[in-house]
Simulated assay, not measured.
Amino acid sequence: MTTLIASVVEPRARFRDLVASEWLKLWSLRSTGWSLLLGTLAVAAFNVGAAWDHWRYWHAYDEAARAAFVTDGMALGDAFTGNAATVLVLWCAAMGAVAVVGEYGSGQVRTTFAAVPARGALVSARALVLAGVYTGFGAVVAGGSFWATQAVLSLRGAGVSPDHPGAVRLVVASALLAPVSALAGMALGALLRRGAAAVVGAVVLLLVLPMVLSEERRPTAVLAHTTPFRAWHRLAGDGAVGPYPWTTGGAWLVYGAWAVASILVTVVVVRRRDQ
């Protein structure tokens, strides 16, 4: 009599199940909601503060300056300022790094990899969740900042409407800067595995480097154009003038390239390391 022994094989986790798991894991952290709320307030404060200054000191400007502010649509510059973009980049990159580093620090990553050996799928699911959450975050911050700043400036008759040239592009570019920064932070977190090191790396790579690269020489100008922060400046309408100007299409490509490269780096690093 032949005895048949049935082997039990665990079914592979479906990708949508991995996405759901990463979603629950992210929102199970109490810090997630608070960090998004505080980040929203911090970024919006810089934008509304700039609009408030123009409203408050409106009568200190001469008539020609007030007329130029309105006719040139300078109110759009208050909708999302460079300081706000700096805070957004740093905040989102830090949160993206924490999403990876936290598991390594607590040792939970061992359990995660034991449950889901398909590391590439796991990382892709995490990247999708991060991109979705921070795209929503960026949309709320950018859209809310535009509405609030223009409402303040409209009290002086200086606000612009959403159909103003460049307004939609500014809001979209500012919103998408959030997920691009979060994914870059995720890649740095996977590479360095230390929260402080990942944050410092994000500051250097995403903020310091684009600031120190000169636009006066072609090699450094081209290198500067490959950074998300300079791409945002170009899309925001600040960066087209210079000896080596570039296109808005090129700036959008930089956004996409950084997002894809960050995911690929994270996948390769996680696959090649034991833990």
Rank of each mutant, 00 (worst) to 15 (best):
R272Q: 01
N83E: 14
Y255V: 03
W27A: 07
I263D: 02
L188H: 01
R126Y: 08
K25E: 14
I5W: 06
G249V: 01
V8D: 11
T247H: 04
V208L: 07
V180F: 07
F146G: 02
G96D: 00
V208E: 08
G39N: 15
A121K: 09
S7W: 11
E216V: 06
A60L: 02
L191I: 05
R230W: 10
S106I: 12
S174V: 07
A42Y: 08
E63A: 15
F46N: 15
A99I: 04
A68S: 09
G201Y: 02
L41N: 10
E63P: 01
L29G: 15
R12E: 05
A175L: 03
Q275E: 01
V48M: 13
A131K: 03
A85F: 15
V160L: 04
L130I: 03
V70G: 00
A139P: 07
G185D: 00
T135M: 07
L155Q: 12
M211W: 08
D78K: 13
S145Q: 10
V129M: 05
A261L: 13
E216Q: 14
S154Q: 13
E63N: 03
A190S: 05
G237P: 14
V254T: 04
M74P: 00
D78Q: 14
A42I: 15
H54M: 12
G201V: 04
V101N: 04
P228M: 13
R56M: 06
G239L: 13
W258M: 06
E22P: 00
A79V: 14
N83V: 13
M186E: 00
R12S: 02
L253V: 08
A118Y: 00
L153W: 14
V9Y: 03
A131V: 01
Q108N: 13
M74C: 06
T247R: 03
W246F: 12
V116C: 02
L155Y: 12
A151C: 08
V260N: 04
S181D: 09
S21Y: 11
A251P: 02
W34H: 07
G185F: 00
L177E: 11
L191W: 02
P117K: 01
W258L: 05
R230S: 11
G105I: 09
G107M: 08
V180W: 07
L206E: 10
V43I: 15
W58N: 03
G73Q: 03
V89Y: 14
R217N: 10
F229Y: 11
M95H: 09
G256I: 03
G102Q: 13
P219W: 09
G105T: 15
W23E: 06
A240F: 06
S161K: 02
Q275C: 07
A142C: 14
R193P: 02
G189Q: 01
V133T: 09
T2G: 01
G166R: 14
L192C: 12
S174N: 12
G77P: 11
A93I: 06
H233Q: 13
S214F: 11
A114Y: 01
W258S: 01
S124K: 10
D274R: 04
W55Q: 11
A6W: 10
A151R: 14
A67V: 02
V254Q: 05
A190G: 00
G185H: 03
R12K: 04
V168Y: 09
I263V: 15
V101P: 00
S145A: 08
H225W: 10
